[in-house]
Design a protein around this nucleic acid. Structure first.
Lengths: 307, 307
DNA sequence: ACAACGCAATACCCTGGAGGTATGATCCGG
DNA sequence: CCGGATCATACCTCCAGGGTATTGCGTTGT
């Protein structure tokens, strides 16, 4: 049996007349007669009673009509869904994020993606940098978000956003009272650094920046993530350099200060990583959305990184 | 798209290798390659990633695999069900009965049919004789059960069972005390007759039998059905001739008596009626069951009509 | 009663496409 | 760098689906 048989069968059943059905199907009447005969023969069932006025369905034919319509709609649905999946408009995207990245741009990004591709289910996973690389290679995720990534041969990167750094200062801290905080001031106060995981990381960046200015920071704590760092700062453990988006965290007991006279490179990138070999149209759509969003933000003038 | 395409697609997806899939499908590899290419082209979607080790499904391909398996099983189910319907093993049979016929043979008959054809849904309708004829012609029912049917050109009949007649007598009635009740005795006692509906009916049969013996019965009541008649007899309204199966009704206050020296024709047929033009295999199966059951009953020796 | 019409079925032809064989293009492992 | 495996391409064959012409049959209309 063939989908053609079913299509023809439905037409004949609905027209109750082979001639009209043939016209509707844009074929001539005799082949249609034969196809119906074939179908009946193959099933071993009489589907129509031939009357001088046309074709009348038998009970078995009635049943097949139901089933055939069902199958037809399922086939239509299958092609349509497969096409949408092929265009990246239907499916699933597994995304890895890390703690503090969720603070700023990622929620708006995911929202924008969801609006453009409502039938793509986005699944979030919390992963460290190295876990992300591994998960990408094992295809457990399709994209990851990261900072300070060492390059890998098979992993592509796309810059999502660039954020300036701010200093989180306890309210009672001497630096909180200064009108202007200078980078060099960091030499005299204990610093909270993060993340404590895989190197190179944000920690190395800050140590590097300090080295450029000829001092080595006094490290009071190394913690896992920005949230913990700011929380510790709020408790007076020390000051802490954070991406601008961390201002989302408004702990009592902590204020944010711009840092003047900072060395070049006093910012941090958020990048998106993916398998270079990944051909998935959903991934392509996601990366495209990232670029479109970055575009939109920069055109809006007051981009986050300029805050 | 074609069912062939789906079948081939499933095979390739499952084998992850065109060559092996071709073997499994009993065709050679190149046509299979082409069919897959066609399918991809028609959908406008890449379904497989070609690797040096075989064919790997894309996400869109994964989705289509699900859908295709679904469609395949639906097609299989459709053919199987249609075939069963064509053999009368699946479907629906609308059966008309009238009041008292339900007392005896019809329940066992329906039970036997249900056992043989468990997937045929039997729907019962209560109808009078004339309603049955009309409903048959309008295809609202496929079979009816009846007694004393006037012949119709387009309606076929099949004898279901023949039942002797018994006399239902009030317990306190003089005839209840006689050791032997003779047919001629009926001349002296008021009779309850039924059914009061369309003629000719059971009533005419009894009046005819009496006429053969040269008397006209004294009619105390005409009622609609056997159950009412026996109930009235139990209340002392008179005596009443009923088919043997009415002994199912064991009212207090009524006893059943054989009638001796009855004229020939002192029995009543239960017949099954159907449209002669009806080709439905379900009807055929039902009529066949009726004959098989009658056969079984007569072979069992103590047939109901001999009770 | 017979002609005219409508419908499905049959006879016969033609062509597109499914399937076959042979071969090429790539990539991997030894 | 070669042998083997895999998918793709080229080209041929042949069947089956589609077309035209016609028949068969029952109903209808005059």
């Amino acid at each position: 049996m063939d989908l053609r048989h079913l299509r023809y069968f439905i037409a004949v059943a609905e027209e109750a007349n082979i001639g009209r059905a043939a016209t509707r199907l844009h074929i001539s009447q005799p082949p249609l007669t034969r196809q119906i005969q074939q179908l009946e023969e193959e099933l071993g069932v009489t589907l129509f009673i031939r009357t001088p006025r046309g074709m009348e369905l038998t009970p078995a034919g009635e049943l097949l009509l139901d089933e055939a319509r069902n199958i037809r709609s399922l086939v239509e649905q299958a092609t349509e869904r497969t096409q949408r999946a092929g265009q990246g408009r239907l499916g699933r995207l597994d995304v890895a994020i890390f703690g503090s990245a969720i603070l700023d741009v990622i929620p708006t990004l995911l929202l924008a993606f969801r609006n453009r591709y409502p039938d793509v289910k986005v699944v979030l996973h919390n992963m460290t940098k190295n876990e992300q690389i591994e998960a990408l290679r094992q295809r457990r995720i399709s994209v990851g978000f990261n900072r300070m990534l060492a390059p890998h041969e098979d992993i592509g990167t796309l810059l999502v956003t660039t954020e300036n750094l701010l200093l989180a200062v306890p309210t009672e801290h001497p630096l909180a009272r200064q009108e202007i905080v200078r980078f060099a001031d960091l030499a005299h106060h204990p610093l909270i650094l993060f993340p404590s995981g895989a190197r190179p990381s944000f920690i190395d960046k800050i140590i590097g920046l300090c080295a450029e200015r000829g001092f080595e920071p006094r490290v009071s704590q190394e913690v896992g993530d920005a949230v913990t760092a700011v929380a510790l700062a709020a408790s007076g453990f020390g000051v802490c350099l954070v991406p601008t988006s961390a201002t989302t965290l408004q702990f009592p007991g902590v204020v944010y200060r711009r840092v003047h006279e900072a060395p070049p490179g006093f910012f941090v990138d958020l990048t998106c990583i993916y398998r270079k070999a990944d051909q998935s149209p959903i991934l392509a759509a996601f990366l495209e959305t990232i670029e479109a969003e970055r575009e939109a933000r920069s055109q809006a003038g007051s981009s986050h990184s300029a805050r």
